[in-house]
Amino acid sequence: MLHHRVEGAVSAPPLFLGPSLGTSLALWDKVAPELSVAHRVVRWDLPGHGGSSASLIGPGATVGDLAALVLALADSLGIDRFSYAGVSLGGAVGLHLAVHHPERVERLAVICSSAHFSGSKPWEERAALVRAEGLAGLAEGADARWFTPGFTVPELVEDHRTADPDGYAACCDALAAFDIRERLSRIGAPTLLVAGREDPATPPAHLREIADAVRGAGLVEIPGASHLAPAERPEAVLTALRAHFDGDAGRGMAVRRQVLGDEHVDRAQARQSAFTARFQDFISRYAWGEVWTDETLSRRERSMITMTALVAHGHYDELAMHVRAARRNGLTPEEIGAVLLQTAVYCGVPAANSAFAVAQGVLAEEGLAP
């Protein structure tokens, strides 16, 4: 079985994340935790990479062989239908699944990948080189192939260096044989293409070719990104994937960050466990994805209402958070004070007294308290 990691609630919609040649599931470290708020995320390692055995495939392997391993993994987890996102070779696996197993693929995102990888000869030569000399020399040039100048992720470069040569070479065989251009029109799953604008391996034209062939497909180009966009520009990739996969939960997470701030949301995400994942999804999907995005009330008005409700029920820890949110939403200290004064009339003087103390502490942190 492919080595894998599962994150998010068991009841959430499943989303598989496929890696690029030479990397491990660590490629998704800056993206997967956020996606797991709304999905049961399954990351997997290619054979001979990360924790997956090289013996899962052999010489002459195909992308279809890798896709079969992904389906076997899904079956082992009791997952019948799933969404899928993959980078480079991982993206090719997604294309194969969408063409040959459409009943299994709900939605598809193909990142820095291609319907063909510029002919078989370069990959045949690389496979022969790796089988003869190993990966140390090839890994030295990983930064130039993967990232824009001056950027690197040492952990991913180390993954490249320590991959099993036989597994890596078999994956090169799969890339050499892959050409699905004539079958792209058969893809019926809603499809998103994500291109790194600085990607020399699979330039935006490769993604555009897929977008032109797949009915209704969308295309996003990310500036400042090379071949491993989820590692180099995770925020941009996450924004694109949320819009494609998440619906209300994805939109809600964006609003939640805008109102509460990245620091607070990052702490909440770090504390998330299998036990709390469904609750976090509930908050993102309904509170932030539906209520806070309703344009009937402005965010300023919603902040005033929220502070009042928190005072009424004595939720002062939450009140501190929402005083900070009120400042982000444009309320002045004077307006926050006026809201709390209103609560003295309708929620009680002791409650308002505690609320003023909390708010004064928060404002003092910002250097705004009298």
Rank of each mutant, 00 (worst) to 15 (best):
E106S: 13
E106F: 06
L108V: 00
V110T: 01
I111F: 13
C112W: 02
S113M: 12
S114G: 15
F117R: 14
G119P: 11
G119L: 10
S120D: 15
P122K: 00
P122C: 14
P122M: 05
W123Q: 08
E124D: 10
E125H: 07
E125D: 15
R126K: 04
R126I: 10
A127N: 08
A127W: 12
A128Q: 09
A128L: 07
A132I: 07
E133M: 12
A136M: 07
L138A: 13
E140Y: 04
R145Y: 09
R145D: 08
W146M: 01
T148Q: 09
T148C: 15
P149R: 04
G150D: 10
F151K: 00
F151M: 03
T152N: 09
V153D: 15
P154E: 13
E155Y: 04
L156C: 12
E158G: 11
H160I: 02
H160P: 00
H160G: 00
R161S: 12
T162W: 05
A163S: 15
P165Q: 09
D166E: 10
A169P: 05
A169I: 10
A174M: 05
L175M: 15
A176E: 13
A176P: 05
R183F: 06
R186T: 14
I187Q: 01
G188R: 02
A189K: 05
P190F: 12
V194N: 09
V194K: 05
G196W: 07
R197H: 08
R197I: 03
A201M: 14
T202W: 08
P203V: 12
H206M: 15
L207I: 02
E221L: 06
G224F: 13
G224C: 08
A225F: 03
A225Y: 02
